[in-house]
Structure formats: C-alpha cells, structure tokens
C-alpha cells in the first residue's frame, strides 16, 4: 500500500475544458460521418444505425482514453473488453449499411454472423471478468431497457394493429432498441457514479 490518492475532483474550469474538447471532437466526428455517408443512406433506419454506431465508437474511444490515462489492474482486462465489445457492436451496425458496397449480401451476412459470435464471446468474457458492481450495472441496464422496450413495443404494436401507424422494419426496431439500451446504460451507470 502506498500514498493516499482519492478519485480527484476536477475543477469547474477543467470540467468546462473537457466538455468543450469532447463537444469539439463530437462535432468533428459527426461532420466526418455525415460527409462520408452523404448520399449512401436513403432510409431513417440506416441513419439511426449509423448514429448508434458512432455513439458506440465514441464511448469506446473515450473508455480507451480513460484506461490509458488511469490504468487499473483490477478487474484484469475488464476495461479493454469494454472497448472491444463497444467497437465490435459498432461494426455490427455499420456492416449491413455499408458492407454491400464491397461484397455480396451473402458475404456481408456471413461477416455479420461472425461478428455476432465474436462479440457475444467478448460480452461473456466481460461478464466473467467484471466485478460485482459492474455486473449489477449490466443487469439494471438490461432490466430497464427490457421494461422500456416491451412497453414501447406494445404501444406501437397496438397502434399498428389498428392501422394508425405504418410498419417499422426489423432493422429499424433493432436501431430503436439499441438507442433505448444506450440510454438505459447511461442511467444505470450514473446511479452508481460511473461516468
């Protein structure tokens, strides 16, 4: 054991500087994505998938930055796995949108299935290496997201059955689910003081 070092409390100026930096990075990233994907997407489902992927890449990069800044050996490998899971999930959302520009749909689908297997394995490893609080956050995220999704899905399904709204594709639904899951994870993490 060595000298006492608590979690530092950043000053307001430092918080503002980090906020401006992240906002600038987010703006530049958004502009880059919009430029790269200009004209490539014609459906809102694809736009939502790209937004979700961009958010996951952003969170993954911020997590990687935090790990590099304050490395921790306990739980071993947990932080790296969180980054890997995020980046693989982002790739899973990007491949169906942009993959067909480089390969046939069958090949792209094969790559998507491969990513699903690898990402699921990484998720399982993350669960096994996580400590009990991170597991609790994951469970609470899942519970909160399930509650919100099943409620929203029921309301939408009833409206669709009555012919009041149009049909949403499976691709659109998974994008919405991911968005809800993302918000649920932010809420669950914030309750435990994780940011």
């Amino acid at each position: 054991m060595n000298a006492s070092v608590d979690t530092p409390r950043p000053s307001l100026l430092r918080k503002a500087a980090v906020f401006v930096l992240l906002a600038g990075l987010g703006g530049a990233f958004g502009y880059g994505v919009a430029t790269l994907t200009d004209g490539a997407m014609s459906r809102w489902e694809d736009e939502l998938a790209v937004v979700m992927a961009a958010a996951m890449i952003g969170v993954g990069l911020i997590t990687a930055f935090m790990i590099a800044r304050r490395p921790a050996d306990v739980p071993r490998g947990c932080g790296v796995l969180q980054v890997v899971v995020m980046l693989l999930a982002a790739a899973m959302f990007l491949l169906p949108v942009f993959g067909s520009a480089w390969a046939t749909p069958n090949v792209v689908f094969g790559a998507v299935l491969l990513l699903v297997v690898v990402q699921s394995g990484a998720n399982l490893m993350l669960w096994r290496t996580a400590d009990e609080m991170l597991r609790r956050v994951m469970l609470e995220t899942s519970a909160l997201a399930f509650w919100a999704v099943q409620l929203g899905l029921f309301v939408y399904a009833a409206a669709e059955r009555l012919g009041l709204v149009g049909t949403i594709t499976g691709w659109g639904l998974i994008g919405l689910l991911m968005g809800i899951y993302f918000i649920a994870s932010i809420i669950a993490a914030a309750r435990r003081g994780l940011h």
């Binding site: 304050r70 921790a72 050996d73 306990v74 739980p75 947990c78 400590d131 609080m133 435990r192 003081g193």
Partner: peptide
C-alpha cells in the same frame, strides 16, 4: 480496490 479485487470505481461507489 486491489486488496478487494474490485475496480476503483466500485470502491468510490
């Protein structure tokens, strides 16, 4: 955190 085998964030929480 190291002594307990949990993350620093868990100790903080």
């Amino acid at each position: 955190a190291h002594a307990l085998g949990v993350s620093r964030q868990t100790v903080n929480a």
